[in-house]
Design a protein around this nucleic acid. Structure first.
Length: 424
RNA sequence: GGAAAGGUAGCGAAGAGGCCGUAACGCGAUCGACUCGAAAUCGAUUUACCGGUGAUGAGCUGGUACGUGGGUUCGAAUCCCACCCUUUCCGCCA
């Protein structure tokens, strides 16, 4: 949620942000809703002030044993008026709140202005795509031919966009999780967390999945429960409604969890392979930062995702999402894209965002210095990394002419030394 | 799933229709006094949000909040209803 005060005092800032994002929201509508709310509020608060004064008088009279019946009748009328007006005030408040909850974050000044993914500038490119002297196969085919992926049985068990992994593929998934987590917790400053995979609607609202993007989520039939689409949701909400001591910032968490996404609206996209699944495993990084340092923290966190790809010897590039392509809650996002030889394209493997105070305000995550005033922290999140897309990249980039796949040496300790996947 | 107890400031906890919500009492935190310094002691300060005014500050001023949402009442932390959560016990279970 963006700052109410900011919209009231500087509506032109939000107007520009909405235009740059190609949003169809109109600040004029907010002005009208908020004006209405304030007008009603003033009226009802004035009446309540009258009632409070009168009530004190009634109490005093009653204590002295005097007759209060004449007051009671008049106050009854006043209370009825207040009750009616209170309903209107609540509706007006809700309208303003709903508008704000549906309003995206304001992009940082450093974010390039653009309409869609074609306007995302490349920040840097690392490693160079390998030259192949044989026809390159796509990862789904490689995985199936090496008896690691079983799409048919996955479809039988659950449906399309699911995967059953066997043998080396299942082991590789587990190895990558351990490798990523070890890097984050031993080399960097992340604290490993094992959060719930199911959260309630308040938690989903804190990070911005609700109320606007409910169709992207899997909702459980019983109770107020949703499957997490990313560990960003439980990790960021760990400190919801808390005031942190300033000295513990920056605070970093990572978690390996399955992620569940309905992929509504992506029919026909990435139907081959394992790029877009309803369920996949991912290690997520989340950082809580002092507002003054959050953009440095974004660079740092992005470098953590990139470092993993370097260790895995995968060519990648980093792009900066333009205003039109950025996610709802983000003020600035870097996407890290890994090279997929079969597609002859860089494809998103990590998305690192600084949400500034947007999520912190929704979830009530504050920090306080000694003797200072509480203020909202800045929250950041990034993939580091998803196992599925990483495996896809490893298979395509490591494929050999004889059908085998050579995996990077760095994974050897996690695979009992077996870094070559041989055809049976 | 059943039963009981509970949910009030940073923490513990009192209050049981108006005299009690910047909320008793205890702890903690911040500042000050005493001290060479510390401890102990003494004193002061210490909720958030939404309006009005003002400068998105200070100050002044009004309103709201006792788990959440309703109800009764001139008036609710207090009475009634529903729900959520916590703890303990029982049942079931990896």
């Amino acid at each position: 949620m963006i700052d109410l005060k900011l919209v009231q005092k500087n509506p032109e800032i939000l107007a520009k942000a909405l235009k740059d994002r190609h949003s169809d929201l109109d600040v004029a509508e907010f002005k009208q809703l908020d004006g209405h709310r304030r007008e009603l509020l003033q009226r009802v608060e004035d009446l309540k002030s009258q009632r409070n004064q009168a009530s004190a008088k009634v109490a005093e009279l009653k204590r002295n044993g005097e007759d209060i019946s004449s007051y009671v009748q008049e106050l009854s009328k006043l209370s009825d008026t207040i009750k009616t007006l209170d309903v209107e005030v609540n509706e007006a408040k809700e309208a303003v709140h709903d508008w704000l909850m549906g309003c995206p974050n304001i992009p940082d000044a450093s974010v390039p202005i653009g309409a869609d993914e074609n306007d995302n500038p490349e920040v840097r490119r690392v490693g160079s795509p390998r030259e192949f002297d044989f026809p390159v196969r796509e990862h789904g085919e490689i995985g199936e031919s090496l008896a690691g992926f079983d799409f048919e049985r996955a479809s039988k068990l659950a449906g399309s966009r699911f995967l059953v992994s066997f043998d080396w593929a299942a082991r590789l998934d587990r190895a990558l999780i351990n490798f990523f987590i070890d890097q984050h917790t031993r080399r960097e400053d992340y604290i490993e967390v094992a959060p719930p995979y199911i959260v309630n609607s308040q938690t989903m609202t804190g990070t911005g999945q609700l109320p606007k993007f409910e169709e992207d989520l899997f909702k459980l039939r019983e109770g107020d429960f949703y499957l997490i689409p990313t560990a960003e949701v439980p990790l960021t909400n760990l400190h919801a409604q808390e005031t942190l001591d300033e000295s513990i910032l920056p605070l970093a968490y990572c978690a390996a969890t399955p992620c569940f996404r309905s992929e509504a609206g992506s029919a026909g996209k990435d139907t081959r392979g394992i790029i877009r699944m309803h369920q996949f495993n991912k290690v997520e990084m989340v950082r809580f930062s002092h507002p003054e340092h959050s953009f440095e923290q974004l660079e740092l966190m992005t470098s953590h995702a990139c470092h993993l790809l370097e260790l895995l010897e995968l060519p990648y590039r980093v792009i900066c999402l333009c205003t039109g392509d950025m996610g709802f809650g983000s003020a600035k996002t870097y996407d890290v894209e890994v090279w997929l030889p079969a597609q002859q394209k860089y494809r998103e493997i990590s998305s690192c965002s600084n949400c500034i105070d947007f999520q912190a305000r929704r979830a009530g995550i504050r920090f306080k210095s000694k003797g200072g005033k509480a203020n909202f922290v800045h929250t950041l999140n990034g993939s580091g990394l998803p196992t599925g897309r990483t495996i896809a990249a490893l298979l395509e980039n490591g494929q050999q002419k004889d059908g085998s796949v050579i995996l990077p040496k760095v994974l050897a300790p996690y695979l009992h030394g077996e870094t070559v996947i041989q055809p049976k």
